[in-house]
Nucleic acid binder design. Structure first.
Lengths: 177, 177
DNA sequence: CAGGGATGCGACAATGTGTCGCAAGATACG
DNA sequence: CGTATCTTGCGACACATTGTCGCATCCCTG
């Protein structure tokens, strides 16, 4: 079926996404860094790409162009944990078809991967449950917390929320990792 | 000089921007609503457009296409007080060349209006901060809301939050960058 | 050992949320 | 046209969640 290339240096996330896509009938492959990604793309031009912007040193933005050169018709979906309007605008201008902030449901990615490239604008996406705001917040907190090595104070600062509030939220839910 | 059309239903802001542009050598005109804007654009196709997304009832997004039809080569800069990645992505896909969150300095607008096919691309340091939970929630809400065609009740159901709460959140306008 | 964080937690006021209810518009349909 | 079904805005109010302060540990690191 659809050949999708997942580019993300987070091994776990990458693997999970590849598996999720495979389970839904896509021929999904994963690349952990820019170099591997380009090699794979040139070897066998993918029909779609899921690209993380935070690839170690360089920005995934730099990959959009070469990827499109290797596979002009592929649909690139940009994904990032450090979303911003500036990079979103840039990504789309460079040729990406969609841009998501990272805690995102696979369904949303599928919605833009599946349809034809043509009328991307007006497409009604069939019923898929978006994450509840609560769940979204939780996933985000967990991710940032991990990125800060479990440091609650630092995480609270990064998230611009009060330490006390973060503590309370963490206290309510079990989880530890 | 450059002929710019400012479309914003906030009379004060509109006037201020027009004056600011005029003072810098642009032939600036202002339109307070979609209809007037289209009429003016068709009468005399502008070289550039500054478009506010929040034009009373309908979204400024709907104006991008007709504007480009009236003046294919014009550079459209989208401006909005309720910025979100979802609308930014949409605006760029529709053909806008830039997207800013209000408040924004006139300088920034000038930067994309003045020069040639602005390639100010290469140099910007993407914010390395994760989104604040507040910001993330806002983005998510905006996305789901768009997916549901602006239907608040449906969005609230999808998000599993109370309609009243959603209304209240939308009624506020915090959100900053 | 001192200084600078990081943590956990109590207490309170300031906000925000869950619910109800109601009156207005929209729509859809026979 | 009339009616049933939705959607929307908004007031009220009890209850829940935050924003803040303050403190008493711990933990490092110079």
């Amino acid at each position: 079926m659809n050949d999708v290339l997942v580019i993300d240096d987070d091994e776990t996330f990458n693997a999970v996404l590849v598996r999720a896509l495979a389970r839904r009938g896509f021929a999904a492959r994963g690349a952990l860094d820019a170099e591997a990604a380009l090699t794979m793309a040139r070897e066998k031009p993918p029909e779609a790409v899921v690209l993380d912007l935070n690839l170690g040193s360089l920005s995934g933005l730099a990959l959009i162009k070469p990827l499109l050169e290797a596979s002009p018709s592929c649909r690139i979906v940009v994904l990032t944990g450090y979303a911003s309007i500036a990079t979103a605008v840039e990504a789309i201008k460079l040729g990406a078809v969609q841009y998501f902030a990272k805690p995102v449901e696979v369904e949303a990615i599928l919605a833009t991967l599946g349809p034809e490239p043509a009328n991307a604008t007006k497409s009604f996406s069939p019923p898929y449950d978006p994450l509840s705001v609560e769940r979204l917040e939780w996933e985000h907190i967990q991710r940032v917390l991990r990125e800060h090595g479990g440091n609650i104070s630092a995480t609270a600062r990064a998230l611009k929320m009060h330490r006390r509030t973060l503590q309370r939220k963490l206290a309510k839910k079990p989880v530890k990792l």
